[in-house]
């Protein structure tokens, strides 16, 4: 009755109408959640989830592991920069500390009426039994045997030998060292002799001399080596034996000989 062509056209029209009707019904009830939707969701979403997780996993793998090659390079670069910055910081701190020490020495140099040469300690005695240091100034700088060596803290020692550019200094804490000294408060005299790296003996202080713990001991200038009035140390221990003419006194030097870096050599 109908030709094949007409039947096809009718089918298309029918489908179009059905679609329009269904769309109209659907538009009338938007967001309707039917059992079909649930089934569809239950069937599809797990797969979506799986694929999605796999993709995320791959992306994470890429970014956190494979991509880390470049991150590692950046890390190394940053680490290098940090180390450099740390070194610069340390260097700057060291410069600041050196600057402070040198400023103190400079102030002292301008205050004292002596001609002085600054020097750096470049070496120490090879044995712990003898207390000497080497400084980087010698006869070329006017240094000669017997000259006094001081810091802003006090007396360091005296030059016992000098070459062209270096000199050897015997510290006051050496047992063979001696400094004529007096107690600043009472003017009691004695001789400072080395004992250990932390203390000196203040010998030949007469029994009747009035001295107290923490009294400051200064150089008397009578030995012809150390200028008068330079700080040597503070009295740390006094004992008066039952017999004898003198007291036994120990003095703690003001100079920290373990941290000796810059010194001044008194030329006159």
């Amino acid at each position: 009755m109908f030709s094949k062509k007409l039947a096809r056209i009718l089918c298309v029209v029918l489908f179009a109408l059905i679609s329009i009707v269904l769309l109209s019904i659907s538009a009338k009830h938007p967001h309707r959640y039917t059992i079909v939707d649930r089934v569809a969701m239950a069937g599809i979403v797990p797969f979506q989830d799986g694929v999605s997780r796999t993709m995320h996993f791959c992306a994470r793998m890429w970014h956190h592991y494979f991509y880390l090659v470049s991150v590692r390079e950046e890390y190394d670069r940053l680490k290098g920069m940090l180390a450099k910055a740390e070194m610069e910081k340390s260097w700057s701190l060291e410069s600041e500390l050196a600057c402070r020490r040198l400023r103190k020495l400079l102030e002292m140099k301008s205050e004292l009426p002596y001609r002085m040469v600054p020097a750096s300690v470049v070496g120490l005695d090879p044995s712990g039994w003898f207390k000497t240091v080497f400084i980087n100034r010698g006869t070329e700088d006017g240094i000669s045997k017997g000259m006094a060596v001081i810091t802003s803290d006090g007396v360091v020692g005296r030059v016992i030998g000098a070459s062209g550019r270096y000199a050897k200094v015997l510290l006051i804490i050496d047992r063979s060292s001696a400094v004529d000294a007096l107690v600043q408060r009472t003017r009691s005299r004695g001789i400072i002799e080395g004992e250990t790296s932390e203390s000196c003996r203040f010998k030949y202080v007469v029994r009747k001399a009035d001295i107290k713990i923490e009294d400051t001991v200064i150089s008397s200038g009578l030995d012809g080596l150390f200028p008068k009035g330079l700080r040597v140390g503070a009295i740390s221990e006094i004992s008066r034996p039952s017999s004898g003419l003198f007291q036994e006194v120990k003095v703690r030097p003001f100079v920290d000989f373990t941290r000796l870096e810059e010194v001044l050599v008194v030329l006159e």
């Binding site: 470049v122 070496g123 120490l124 005695d125 090879p126 044995s127 712990g128 373990t258 941290r259």
Partner: peptide
């Protein structure tokens, strides 16, 4: 050895550790 023990090995860090 002489240079080392009069400079580096005399630092307070190594105090009393190193012999001649």
């Amino acid at each position: 050895a002489v240079v080392a023990q009069t400079t580096i090995l005399r630092l307070p860090l190594f105090h009393g550790i190193f012999y001649d």
